[in-house]
Amino acid sequence: MSGAPLLEARGLRYAYPGAGTEVLSGISLGVRAGQVVALLGANGSGKSTLLRLLLGLLAPGAGSVWLDGRALTAVSRRAAARRLAYVPQLHSVPFPYLVRDLVALGCIPRRGLFRTLGPTDHAAVGAALERLGIGHLAQRPYTGLSGGERQLCLIARALVQEAAVILMDEPVTGLDYGNQWRLLALLRELAAEGRAVVATTHYPDHALSTADRVVLLHEGRLLADGTPETVVTPANLHTLYRIKVSTHRVPGGPLALVPTLLGRPALGPTRTQGVCHG
C-alpha cells in the first residue's frame, strides 16, 4: 500500500493577508495510502490552515502541495476533487437537505454541475450509506440529525467522491464519548481499505491509539512527525499544551496519557488500568 506519497507538502509557508506573522512556516510532510495521520497542535497552531492548504483552498505563500506526484496548482479543481475529499468541521446547514441528497453532492466531481445522476451514482450513494450503517437515514433531513449522524453523512459524501485521500477537520469535536471512539475506529477501517486519512484533533489520546503517524504543529512549525509512541511524549505534549502529562502502559495494550493538574499526583499503575477500562 505504501510507496510514493499520495499527497505531499513541500516547504509550505502561509500568512493570512494583512497579518504580518506567518501562520505556517516551512511545513513538509507526505501522506501515504493506508495511513491514518493525526495532526495535533494547540489552538491557533495552524492545523486547519495546513488542512486548507493541502486541499488547495488556500494558496501557499511559499512551497507547494503535490498530489499523485503533480503540483496541485497544475491539477484542475475537479480532477483534484476526485482524489481529495474534505470532511469539514461539524456545521449546520440552514436548509433541510435530505441525507441522500447531501451525500449525492459527492457525485459532483465525477458528473459535474449539470449532468443528471445515473444508476452508478445512485449505487455509489447507496453503498456509502450502507457502508456507514446510515441507510435508514437516507430520507431524513440532515438538519434533524444528531452530531454523530451528521458527521457520518459528511463522511459518506467523501466516500461517494471516491477520493484516495480524506482530510478531516476535527472529526470527533462535538461527538459524545462513545461516538468519538466509534468514529476513530471508522478512520482505521477507511485506512485499511487503502485510503489515506488525515485528521486534525485536540486529543493526543486519540492520536496515540488510532493513528499510524502523528504530526505535531507548534506555533506554525513542524515539531515532530513520526509513529505515535515516539511523537506523543510528555516532553512534546508539554511544549504543545504547557501541561504535564505522564504516560502509562496498559498491560498488553496501548499507552495511556494521564495529565497532572491541580496539584494532583499522577495516578499509580493500578488506577491507570481502572481509568483505561472504565
Binding site: L132, G133, G148, E149, R182, A185, S209, G253, H277
Partner: peptide, 17 residues
C-alpha cells in the same frame, strides 16, 4: 447526541484496539 454512531465495528468491544 443520544443515538450512537451505527458502526460496523461493534460498539460493545471492550477497547479501541
Amino acid at each position: 447526541m443520544s443515538r450512537p454512531i451505527p458502526l460496523r465495528a461493534s460498539a460493545l468491544s471492550p477497547g479501541l484496539a
